[in-house]
Every structure is written in structure tokens, then in C-alpha cells.
């Protein structure tokens, strides 16, 4: 039967119009709270500690926040599909080492741009490979992701250290480190532009494409997604590959900034990325999470770190505070889902 036939038979009874939503609806509760907290924190900091407003401090802050946002964006996709990626730190170590080694070992006389291209390409390949292994294990072994990623992170860090014997890898072209990694373009650090571009890309994916919808669907209710005819496992794996790729991108930016490939990079970033995602309202129950809130949460966390540095709070105590924040936000997440 054709659609036309059907329509002629249709008696329009009463059509219910869509609920009218204005722009405010699109800003969730989380967005509002985060913006308020960020502005408040900035205000207090600028009053209490004038060094906060120094151009150098702001540039560093923005660079670190951008890198954190990039990793957390990948973590967000994994949490949306009800997983956790504990291997992002390890992946960063691996990518850093691989990128630096490739750049340091290209044949003499290769053009700088090609050298960078090879290094960056190898880095992304390494990141995607880790993500793929994680994704395949989670999708087909059906084990909780944190066990799988704990295992792969041990393997990947071991590999990164084995390849370098734990010694930093030097010899990257200046065009990569000082002219890109530490560069300030138009008053803003290079990493910021890349982070903003990535955020825009993910916003488009989440809001305007089927891939974004499918990832939400797989996380919201896996069985329903299968019943609806989606190749659910494909989107599950995709989330982990995205996380591997974002970890790679963050690592490349960080490696460029430091100027050497290091197997010890990314240690605390795994936990920070999870913290950012959770603070940014990505639900631990799956199926919920927006890139814009994750970016705001990254900025918030970096501001907090910056504040503690400026106020000379021991860096180890930051771990304690972060741990508490994550548990409290998780408790709030539980409360929200229960009250529905």
C-alpha cells in the first residue's frame, strides 16, 4: 500500500501540536549552574589573586582546559553508552611516545610538514587501535568496560614504557613544538582553536546526525536499540574509538606543548576526564550527555585547579577534593534518577 492511499484514508482527528519550547529550554539546569559557578569563581579569583588575570596565566588555563575538554568529550561518548574508559591516560602515554618516535625517526631530509603528518597520523592510529580493542572487548565479551579498560591500560602503558625504556623521546621538529604546541594565535592558545573546532563537530554529531542519535539510543536502552533495528554493537564500539581518538588528539597537543614524547604523560587525566564528564551532567545510567556542558565542566575544573595552584594548596590534596566531588556528583545523579 502506498503512502498516498493511506493518507486518503486518514481522518485527521485532532493533531497535538509540539510543546512550544523557547531557547531557554535548550540550556539545561546543568548549563546554568556551571556558567554561574564559573563566573563566580572567576570573579572571586580576580579579586583575591591579581595574578589570575595575567595574560600568561589565562593562556595556560585555557590551553589546559581545552586539552581536558577534548579528552572528556571522548569519555562522554563512552559514558553515554554506559561504559567507562579507564585507559585514556594510558592511551595518551602511548600516543605521545609513538608520535615522538615516528617524528624523531623519519629519514633525514623529509619535509617538516610531512614529518609532522607522519607523527600525528601514527599517533591517531595508535589511539584508534586502543579504542577499537576496548570497544570490541566490551561489545563482544559483554564485560563491564572498566575491567577491560583497566586491563588494556596496563598493557598500553607497559608498551609505551617498554618502547622508550621510560626515557623521554626528543627530536621533534620545532614546527611541531614551539611553533604549534606553545603557539598563541590572536591572543588565544592553539589548543583552544582545536578544542573549539572539535566541540563544534561533536555538537553537530550529537544534534544533527543519525550517528549521534544512535549512540544516545544504544546507551539509553541497548535492547530497545536492537529491537529498533540498529547495529547496536557498532555504535558501542564507535564510542570507544572516539574516546581513543580524542585521547590521541589531546596527547598530541600535550606532546607538542612539552616538546618531548613521554610514557608518563596522562597519569591523573583519566580520572579528571571522568570527573569532568560527570560534573558536566553525563548520566552514569547512560543515554544522557551534552558536549556543551562537558566543555563548561572542563573549564570549571581547570579553574578550580588553577585556583588551588594560585592559593598554594598542595597538588596532592587536589586529588582528595576531586575524589569527593565525583562521589557527591554521582550521588546527586542517583538522586535525580530516583525521583523521576
Amino acid at each position: 500500500m502506498t503512502r498516498e492511499q493511506r493518507q486518503t484514508m486518514t481522518r485527521i482527528t485532532h493533531e497535538t501540536p509540539p510543546v512550544r519550547l523557547d531557547w531557554r529550554h535548550h540550556l539545561t539546569e546543568t548549563t546554568g549552574i556551571l556558567i554561574a559557578v564559573i563566573l563566580g569563581l572567576m570573579l572571586i579569583l580576580s579579586l583575591v589573586e591579581p595574578r589570575f588575570l595575567a595574560a600568561q596565566n589565562l593562556a595556560n588555563l585555557l590551553r589546559s582546559a581545552s586539552i581536558l575538554a577534548i579528552i572528556s568529550a571522548g569519555q562522554m561518548f563512552v559514558i553515554i553508552v554506559r561504559g567507562f574508559d579507564l585507559s585514556v591516560g594510558a592511551t595518551m602515554a602511548m600516543v605521545s611516545v609513538v608520535t615522538a618516535m615516528v617524528m624523531a625517526n623519519v629519514p633525514e631530509g623529509t619535509a617538516t610538514s610531512l614529518t609532522i603528518l607522519y607523527g600525528v597520523g601514527a599517533g591517531f592510529a595508535a589511539g584508534a587501535a586502543v579504542g577499537l580493542v576496548n570497544g570490541l572487548c566490551v561489545a563482544y565479551l559483554k564485560v563491564h568496560s572498566f575491567m577491560v579498560t583497566l586491563g588494556t591500560s596496563s598493557i598500553v602503558v607497559g608498551l609505551a614504557l617498554y618502547l622508550t625504556n621510560g626515557i623521554p623521546v626528543y627530536g621533534m621538529p620545532r614546527g611541531f613544538s614551539s611553533e604549534f604546541g606553545r603557539a598563541i594565535w590572536g591572543g588565544l592558545p592553539s589548543a583552544f582553536y582545536i578544542g573549539a573546532g572539535l566541540a563544534l563537530l561533536f555538537w553537530v554529531i550529537q544534534n544533527l546526525t543519525t550517528v549521534g542519535k544512535y549512540i544516545y539510543a544504544v546507551g539509553g536502552n541497548f535492547k530497545s536499540a536492537v529491537f529498533s533495528g540498529l547495529s547496536a554493537n557498532r555504535y558501542l564500539v564507535m564510542a570507544y574509538v572516539i574516546s581513543g581518538l580524542t585521547a590521541a588528539l589531546a596527547s598530541i597537543l600535550l606532546t607538542a606543548q612539552i616538546g618531548s614524547g613521554q610514557g608518563s604523560i596522562g597519569g591523573v587525566l583519566t580520572f579528571q576526564s571522568i570527573a569532568v564528564a560527570i560534573i558536566g551532567g553525563v548520566s552514569l545510567q547512560g543515554g544522557v550527555g551534552k558536549i556543551e556542558n562537558v566543555c563548561l565542566a572542563a573549564l570549571f575544573l581547570q579553574l578550580l585547579t588553577n585556583a588551588m595552584e594560585l592559593l598554594r594548596i598542595q597538588s596532592q590534596l587536589q586529588a582528595v577534593i576531586l575524589g569527593l566531588i565525583v562521589i557527591l556528583v554521582a550521588a546527586n545523579d542517583i538522586r535525580k534518577t530516583r525521583s523521576v
Partner: peptide
């Protein structure tokens, strides 16, 4: 089915077209 095949955190229209969205070049 009796057991629902809907994704709770998505809208009605998103659910109706889940898996068979109308798209141009991958855009909804």
C-alpha cells in the same frame, strides 16, 4: 512487544523514527 522498545531519554518523534530516520548526507 509488551516489553517496551522505546528509549526513555529520547523524544516521541526520535523514537518513532529510530533506525529509519529521514536524512540528507547523514544529516537529519
Amino acid at each position: 512487544f509488551q516489553e517496551f522498545s522505546l528509549i526513555p531519554d529520547m523524544t516521541v518523534e526520535e523514537n518513532l523514527y529510530l533506525g529509519r530516520e529521514e536524512t540528507t548526507h547523514g544529516f537529519l
